[in-house]
């Protein structure tokens, strides 16, 4: 299974903490996002991706504790046992 965890405003939007999906071969984070959306009635992709499918700059996406900007961004592969987190941090102080 792949565990996708939702934090802060994403969690508030979706009203759930996480979703678990079975792993499928050769899937990327970008593909996983769309698969998660099919499992959840509330639209959330617009919080992560722009109209061209590129990463927006408000939410961190982590795979196994690493920001995907330091992996292969949306092309980062995901596999069975991975933990993916969507976290839009608070910017103010």
């Amino acid at each position: 299974m792949i565990t996708v965890q939702f934090y802060s405003l994403i969690r508030l939007l979706l009203k759930q903490e996480k979703v678990e999906l079975p792993a499928i071969g050769d899937e990327t984070v970008g593909q996983l996002i769309h698969r998660v959306q099919k499992q959840i009635p509330t639209p959330f992709i617009h919080k992560l991706l722009d109209d061209q499918g590129k990463l927006l700059l408000g939410t961190i996406i982590m795979v196994n504790r690493r920001n995907i900007h330091h992996l292969k961004k949306l092309q980062t592969p995901v596999k069975d046992g991975d933990v993916v987190a969507f976290f839009p941090p608070g910017a103010g102080g």
């Binding site: 990463l55 700059l57 920001n67 941090p89």
Partner: peptide, 22 residues
Amino acid sequence: QGQVITLQKGTSQPLADIFTGV
């Protein structure tokens, strides 16, 4: 929403890496 974390310089992932792209 808010967040708190402790990092140790040189050992932890840098905050700049964690927040890359934000």
